[in-house]
């Protein structure tokens, strides 16, 4: 699945989805495909306070290192520690098992201002 219709998106290719009272955040399948082999990742500690647009981690391929940005402001309440150890899951399930962090958002309305799936799809067309 290249785009998850449930998710909202940033132009920097992070997604966010509502999950009860928190927001799950990950990298889009498009970003993962573009990166190629992911060989190193750094994710934040639980408890870290993020402002929208803050870099919350690093994803590195053989050729490059890229920051990953928070789609919403809030506190990191859970981190998927398994992904840095076995990043192959990103290729198979970017919007599911490949989630990266969960954020308890201060302002849930920020979610609605993110690109929806259609807008992200159109954005990718302009990127290509």
């Amino acid at each position: 699945m290249m785009i998850d219709s449930e998710a909202r998106y940033l132009k920097t290719h992070e997604w966010a989805k509502k999950d009860g009272g928190v927001f799950v955040v990950g990298l889009t399948a498009y970003a993962i495909e573009q990166l190629g082999d992911i060989v190193y990742m750094e994710l934040p500690e639980v408890g870290k306070e993020l402002a929208r647009g803050d870099a919350f981690g690093i994803v590195e391929s053989v050729k490059s290192a890229s920051d990953m940005y928070a789609p919403l402001s809030g506190k990191v309440v859970e981190v998927n520690e398994q992904v840095p150890d076995s990043p192959d899951v990103l290729k198979t399930d970017a919007y599911g098992a490949g989630w990266l962090i969960k954020i308890k958002a201060g302002d849930a309305a920020q979610f609605d201002s993110l690109m929806d799936a259609d807008a992200y799809r159109k954005f990718l067309e302009t990127e290509a």
Binding site: G36, D37, V39, V62, K63
Partner: peptide, 10 residues
Amino acid sequence: PIQYPQGIVA
């Protein structure tokens, strides 16, 4: 070619 579908690691 920077890489083939196999990828740089493979």
